[in-house]
């Protein structure tokens, strides 16, 4: 049975950590779960084609990638959500995955 999953991606000294977390988010989408992620407390560089496509795929599979940083919404079209909104979404999740670090 599909589950609702949220990856939490906090600041890291290596941007690749965040990008790989998005790859894991997509991986669960492909495995038929409702897979989401939120990028918190750091900004990401402009996505290359590969990562932009990953974001599109997550959305195609009924997932979303949120961010608490407006800059990520502006640069990479992530969906802005306040920390309070993220907290409320977490209450609806079956599985919460604080990633890395």
């Amino acid at each position: 049975m599909p589950k609702k999953v949220m990856f939490l991606i906090d600041k890291s000294d290596d941007e690749k950590d965040s990008l790989d977390a998005l790859r894991s988010t997509l991986g669960l989408s492909v495995a038929n779960h409702y897979s989401h992620a939120v990028v918190m407390n750091h900004t990401l560089s402009k996505f290359d084609d590969y990562n932009a496509e990953n974001l599109e795929w997550v959305r195609d599979m009924e997932g979303e990638v949120y961010t608490t940083e407006q800059a990520n919404a502006d640069t990479n079209d992530l969906k802005y959500a306040s920390l309070e909104e993220v907290g409320k979404m977490l209450r609806e999740m079956d599985v919460i995955v604080p990633y890395g670090t």
């Binding site: 939490l8 906090d10 918190m40 407390n41 920390l83 309070e84 993220v86 907290g87 409320k88 977490l90 209450r91 919460i96």
Partner: peptide, 12 residues
Amino acid sequence: PSETTKKLVEIV
């Protein structure tokens, strides 16, 4: 826990 974690824990 960071301030972010504390806030999320409180809401959850």
